[in-house]
């Protein structure tokens, strides 16, 4: 059988909020090492890679590897039924046709079970090569969300230009143009407020706002976001999920026609 328990169901709620605008369904690969999801959005422009390690769960048991196709919208609806302080347990039998979500209140006076039918999905897995990136930026996730939101008003895409002076985000369109520059700031009072720029080579890449604004939905999972970029390869936008894992979004850059 498969059983995974998280004392803080809020983490799983936030994970669902971070993927539900990009994915309608996804295969959850469960093994001894944890839960992995790799899925592209319907337009095949971005890829979501989610990893939740088994040792990050409060209880984890997976007797045999399982691939469970799940409706993200249905899972999201079920997780909305969990109380903020509830514990969540995911449970499935071997060769499952459904998965059960069990929510337990902190004082154990309420137990709710939601059973969700699994869906058959074509297995499709992409090999992501190890890449050494020209620029790796760490910055507050709230700041990144704000920049994407603000610049989206000016155009459909945002250009990221990284130089030794810092990183400049810019957008332009029919109404005008805007740019926001950030310089390295490792003296911030709090670690989560730091901006760290590790640049090997300057670069300039353009990405679609529509997808960036989906990625920033992972902001509540982590105070910091890491952006890894090189010429002609996808941007990696990574949020750590506490001590349990991470969510990485890959986005192909836009190219000049």
């Amino acid at each position: 059988m498969f059983e995974a328990r998280l004392v803080q169901s809020a983490i799983l709620k936030k994970v669902l909020d971070a993927v539900k605008d990009l994915l309608t369904e996804a295969t959850f690969e469960c093994s001894d090492s944890g839960i992995q999801v790799q899925a592209m959005d319907s337009a095949h422009v971005s890829l979501v890679s989610l990893n939740l390690r088994s040792d990050g769960f409060d209880k984890y048991r997976c007797d045999r590897n399982l691939s469970m196709g799940m409706s993200i919208s249905c899972m999201s609806k079920i997780l909305r039924c969990a109380g903020a302080e509830d514990t969540v347990t995911l449970r499935a039998w071997d060769n499952p046709e459904s998965i059960t979500f069990i929510f337990e209140s902190p004082n154990k006076d309420k137990l709710a079970e939601y059973e969700m039918k699994l869906i058959n999905m074509d297995q499709e897995h992409l090999g992501i090569p190890e890449t050494s990136y020209s620029c790796v930026i760490k910055m507050p996730s709230g700041e990144f969300s704000r920049i994407c939101r603000d610049l989206s008003q000016f155009g459909e895409s945002i250009t990221f230009a990284c130089s030794k002076e810092g990183i400049k985000f810019s957008a332009s369109g029919d109404y005008g143009s805007a740019n926001i520059k950030l310089v390295q700031n490792t003296d911030a009072d709090k670690e989560e407020e730091a901006v760290v720029i590790d640049m090997q080579e300057p670069l300039k890449l353009t990405f679609a706002c529509r997808y960036l604004n989906c990625f920033v939905k992972a902001g509540p999972l982590c105070n910091q976001v890491q952006l890894s970029m090189s010429d002609d390869v996808p941007l990696v936008c990574e949020y750590k999920i506490g001590d349990i894992g991470h969510i990485k979004y890959y986005l192909a850059p836009k190219i000049d026609d």
Binding site: M40, A43, H44, V45, S46, L47, E124, H125, L126, G127, I128, P129, S157, T206, A208, V233, P234, Y250, L251, A252, P253, K254, I255, D256, D257
Partner: peptide, 13 residues
């Protein structure tokens, strides 16, 4: 500008 698809960067396994 045009948008490349993400699967063109990765290999199917």
């Amino acid at each position: 500008m045009s948008q490349r698809s993400i699967d063109s960067f990765f290999t199917r396994i």
